[in-house]
Structure formats: C-alpha cells, structure tokens
Amino acid sequence: MNGKTIEIIAIIGMLLATGVTFGLYQINFQGFGHLTNYSKTPAYSLNGTVLYTNGTLFLHITRIAGPDTYGGFVVLVQVLYPNGSVFYEWNASYLGHIPQKDIWNKYDLPGHLTHGDGFALVVPLGQVSVVMLNIPKPVPPGTYIIRVYDADGQYEAYGIKFQVVVTAQSS
C-alpha cells in the first residue's frame, strides 16, 4: 500500500470512530441539544397494572431510570379517584414489609430483585416486577389512578409520571 491509500484508510477509520462516539453521545444522552442524564433520578413505569373490584391490586412496576448501584425506593403507593382524592394508600412501613412471596421478579438474578427492606419497596434498575397488594374493602367499579412516590418525594421525573389509569375489573 502506498502513502495515499494509507491516508484514505486512516481518514475512513477516524470518521468511523468519531462517528460512533458522537452518535452514541446523541443516542444515549441527547447531548448535542439538551443533555439528558437518565442515571441521576429514579423513574418508574406502572404499565400493565391491574386493579380488581375485590380489592386486589397487581402493581406492575419497572424502574426505567436512575442510579444502577442502588435501588429506587418506593415509599408510597396510592389508589386515587380520577379527581385526585385518595381512595386507599400503602405507606413506607407497609411497603417495606411486603413478604417476598407477594413479589414476582421477571429477572431472577441475586442482588437485583425487587424487595421490601423494612423502610421502602426497593426496585433495582431495569427489574420488572409485579407486586400484589390488597385493599381491605371492595373497590367500586370505575376508573382509578395508581401512583407511586419515590423516596425523594416525587412522582415524576424526565416528564414521566409514575402513575397509570386503570379500570377496576371484576375478579
């Protein structure tokens, strides 16, 4: 190979490497516009949650953002009327003592399981879980909002609300 060919190969290689670097920077952090740091504040998705009129709530909870080194801590779960008033709620103490048999984890890997730690419901990053909760009274048919609060007192991050609208189903 002569010098010219080597130069061309070097330029292509440089474009490829810097292209991947800039591309991943934009894909991962949207950094050319407004930098998004998804690993700063915990966020949760409740898609798939089901509420039954007999009072059983299957809370589908996935932690979709936040630090990877420790869990997101859910300290309050609420069942709200559409106007925002509380129908029923579970506090941090209750959530921290949910027996493991009432929690199903999609990915069965030690250290990354959703569990109660005595103070909150711990939801590790990326884990997909279903938590069974019981309301000790019948739930009138209708529409409800299921909302969770993180330990930082928020129920919203990155424009995502940690809530879902459900219709109470007969069991």
């Binding site: 290689g13 490829l16 490497a17 810097t18 991947v20 670097t21 991943l24 920077y25 894909i27 991962n28 952090f29 930098l35 740091n37 998804y38 690993s39 700063k40 630090p67 990877d68 080194t69």
Partner: peptide, 22 residues
Amino acid sequence: GWLGPTCVDEWQIAAVEGAAAL
C-alpha cells in the same frame, strides 16, 4: 453507554477505548 453520566465506565469504554482499538 447511557449509564455514562454518573458511572462513566460504559460511555468511556465505548468512546475512548473503541477509538483507540480501532
């Protein structure tokens, strides 16, 4: 790589080490 901002490992592995290896 999206874990980069707080734990720069993944992002820098991809960007710097990928470029150096290439």
